[in-house]
Computed example of a mutant assay.
Amino acid sequence: MSILKRPLLTEKASAQNEEGVYGFVVATNANKIEIKKAVEKTYGVNVKSVRTINYLGKKKSRYTKSQVITGRSTSYKKAIVKVAEGEVIDFYSGI
């Protein structure tokens, strides 16, 4: 199982990329040390710090003819990674 699932490509995360801060969606059981090693190995940068956030999925409900169906969207874990000064991760190089 891969620790890094995908990069966060939101407007807020893209604004932080200029400061050397990058966001990733990671495996829910991954810890900060594993995330740091995976980013350093995958992108070849030095990681200064890692912050993690467990994101609980939003409640969703749908009204049908017979009943109301309720549930949640998927929960996931985010990692906010700060790389060393002057280093850059380029997510768009493979496009």
Rank of each mutant, 00 (worst) to 15 (best):
V83Q: 04
T10V: 13
A38H: 09
K48Q: 11
E18M: 06
Y76R: 13
I3N: 01
N29C: 01
I35W: 00
I80E: 06
R51E: 10
V68Q: 02
E11D: 14
V81I: 13
N46M: 03
V88Y: 08
V21Y: 00
K48M: 11
V39R: 02
A27H: 14
K59Y: 00
A84S: 12
Q67F: 03
P7E: 02
R6H: 11
Y22S: 05
K37A: 10
S2K: 14
I80D: 01
Q67H: 09
Y76Q: 08
V39W: 03
N31I: 13
S75I: 13
K36R: 15
I3D: 02
Y76D: 09
V45G: 01
S2Y: 11
S66L: 09
Y76F: 15
N31F: 07
I33M: 07
I89V: 13
S73P: 02
R6S: 10
V47K: 04
T70I: 03
M1T: 11
I33E: 04
K41D: 15
S61G: 02
V81Q: 06
T28N: 13
S61W: 02
N46A: 09
G23K: 10
K60H: 05
D90V: 15
N29T: 11
V88T: 15
G94E: 04
S2N: 15
E19L: 14
K77P: 09
E18A: 14
P7L: 03
N46D: 14
V45K: 00
